Simulated scan of single mutants.
Amino acid sequence: MQQDIKITIIDREGHAHTVDAPTDMNMNLMELVRSYELAPEGTIGVCGGMAMCASCQCYVLSDHELPEMSYDEDAMLAEAFHVQENSRLGCQIHIHEALDGLQIQLAPES
């Protein structure tokens, strides 16, 4: 049986939250942020996780190996504000066991 992992999310006010993330629900990071209400409603996941708005942009702070960026994610980040070298769209990173200990910071609202 799969179990929860720990992920640390730094919200837009700079507060760190270490949360339990289920590995058996096919959730992504954007959905995790929404489920713990770590960003005001309507400010994250605006497009519903389709890589079309960049409202779930985050900075990956830990050294975890992530899936390669898709063309859609890369294209959306090319048009987003506040993009950094470690920027990813939270909706495109699905939670699995190898992400235990992942640390991310939510990008500022555009």
Rank of each mutant, 00 (worst) to 15 (best):
A54K: 06
A80E: 11
L102D: 13
A54V: 02
M1E: 15
E85D: 15
D24R: 09
P67A: 03
G42W: 02
G45R: 04
S87P: 08
D63C: 02
E109S: 12
M30T: 02
I95E: 02
A16K: 05
V19I: 04
Q3L: 13
S62E: 10
C47P: 04
M25E: 14
E31D: 01
I9F: 02
A75P: 09
P22L: 13
A80P: 07
Q57V: 01
K6Q: 15
T43M: 08
G42Y: 03
M50K: 14
G45K: 06
V33F: 01
S70L: 15
I5A: 07
P40D: 10
S55L: 00
L99H: 09
N86C: 07
A75W: 14
R12G: 08
H96Q: 15
C91K: 03
N28T: 09
I93V: 13
T18R: 10
I5N: 03
Q84D: 12
C58P: 02
E65M: 14
H15W: 08
C53V: 06
G14Q: 04
Q105I: 03
C56Q: 10
E97M: 12
P67N: 09
P67E: 14
C53P: 05
L89K: 04
E37V: 07
E13S: 11
H82F: 15
L77R: 07
E41R: 06
D74A: 15
M30S: 00
S70I: 15
Q57R: 12
T23L: 11
I10G: 00
A54T: 08
A39V: 00
I7F: 10
P108Q: 06
N26A: 12
Q105E: 14
Y59A: 08
M27C: 11
A21T: 07
R88E: 06
A51S: 11
N28Y: 05
D24E: 09
H64C: 06
E85A: 15
N86V: 05
E13M: 11
A39F: 00
I95H: 00
I7S: 13
S62W: 05
G14L: 08
V83N: 03
E68D: 12
Q3C: 08
E79S: 09
M25I: 06
I44Y: 02
V60E: 01
E13T: 13
V83L: 09
L29I: 13
S35F: 05
T23E: 09
H82L: 06
L77P: 02
M30V: 03
I95R: 00
P22Q: 14
I104P: 05
Q57C: 00
E73C: 12
L32Q: 01
N86F: 00
L106T: 02
M1L: 15
M76D: 07
M76A: 08
M27K: 14
C47G: 01
C91S: 02
E41W: 04
S110L: 11
T23G: 10
T23H: 05
C47V: 04
V19E: 00
L29M: 08
T23K: 07
A16Q: 04
V60G: 03
D74V: 11
L61P: 06
A54E: 00
H94M: 14
Y59N: 10
L89P: 02
V19Y: 00
T23D: 06
S35E: 11
N28H: 13
T8D: 07
E109M: 08
Y36A: 01
E73M: 15
N28D: 14
E13Q: 14
E109K: 05
L61W: 02
S110W: 12
Y36G: 01
V60D: 05
